[in-house]
């Protein structure tokens, strides 16, 4: 006859299983945050896929076009000033520098030169007199355009990215080993408490399933309702980048919960095998 388990042992086992699920959840959240929200490759990918660099060019042209009207110029002076190649090269260099916590100054010499040449061509075509005041005005205007371009190319808050990532890494160096030890300790305790291995594994399966559920619930809700797309942030290309990036980051939590669920299913399969062996 099978030995009856004391109720206190059962309650204690459930408590340990719950603690195990908490430790595993924190572990998954930390890993999901580091490989999701603070993943450099994910950010680069989001910028490429949200057509960030093309959007910077078109937004800059639109913004500068509004400055042209009071200057007495037309949009032809902006032809070939902002090229995708230049924006991509400078944008990528700026992004890499910011992600590594380094400084980078965007080079606008080409833009200034092209813009200046275009304006001079425009004035000569329209027989507009050129004097030192107008020349100074062209220089002032070119500088204004370049500063708008650099401002649009710079991803806001990125300068904090490297610092926060470093801090998170410091936390993870301590937290991951501690949480792993605690989890292993809980597993060993559960095995020790139960007379039968399959009963202990059952508790462990509950923990891993609960972890999968706890970690995936909020990201699933956000991904389904797309609440994060309602962030009021401008300009539109930055909004697209941010929503794409947040969406991809949330998927990292889903992937980690899928791993936990897979482990839970593996443990359930193991329980089934052990019980089958015991029957025979």
């Amino acid at each position: 006859m099978a030995k009856k388990i004391k109720p206190t042992v059962n309650v204690f086992s459930i408590l340990i299983a719950f603690l195990l699920s908490v430790f595993l959840s924190i572990l998954c959240l930390l890993l999901g945050t580091y490989f999701g929200l603070f993943n450099k490759a994910l950010l680069s990918d989001a910028m490429n896929k949200s057509a960030y660099y093309e959007s910077v060019n078109s937004y800059t042209v639109e913004e500068v076009s509004d400055l042209l009207i009071p200057q007495g110029l037309d949009s032809s002076v902006l032809d070939n000033v902002f090229t995708l190649q230049t924006t991509y090269t400078e944008g990528k260099a700026l992004l890499d520098a910011n992600l590594n916590g380094q400084g980078y100054t965007v080079s606008t010499d080409n833009i200034q030169e092209k813009l200046r040449n275009n304006i001079i061509d425009y004035t000569s075509k329209h027989n507009l007199a050129m004097n030192s005041t107008i020349s100074d005005n062209i220089t002032y205007f070119s500088n204004q355009v370049c500063s708008i371009y650099v401002q649009n190319l710079t991803v806001p808050f990125l300068s904090y990215f490297a610092g926060i990532r470093k801090m998170l890494f410091q936390v993870m160096i301590i937290a991951i080993p501690v949480l792993t030890l605690l989890s292993v300790g809980c597993i060993l305790l559960l095995i020790k408490l139960q007379n039968w291995l399959h009963r202990a594994l059952r508790m462990i399966a509950y923990s891993f399933s609960a972890t999968a559920l706890m970690v995936s619930l909020l990201p699933c809700y956000l991904l389904i309702t797309r609440t994060y797309t309602k962030i009021n942030i401008s300009p539109i290309y930055f909004h697209k980048l941010l929503t794409r990036y947040i969406g991809q980051s949330l998927m990292m939590y889903i992937y980690s919960s899928i791993v936990m669920l897979a482990i839970a299913l593996f443990v359930i399969a193991a329980i089934y095998q052990i019980k089958k062996r015991l029957m025979h």
């Binding site: 459930i14 299983a17 719950f18 699920s21 908490v22 959840s25 059952r202 399966a205 509950y206 923990s207 399933s209 609960a210 999968a212 559920l213 706890m214 619930l217 359930i268």
Partner: peptide, 19 residues
Amino acid sequence: KRILAYFYMPVFFTIIGYI
């Protein structure tokens, strides 16, 4: 009962965790 426990126990843990 054991099969159902694989469903309600994780849900129970999740609810307690979120509370």
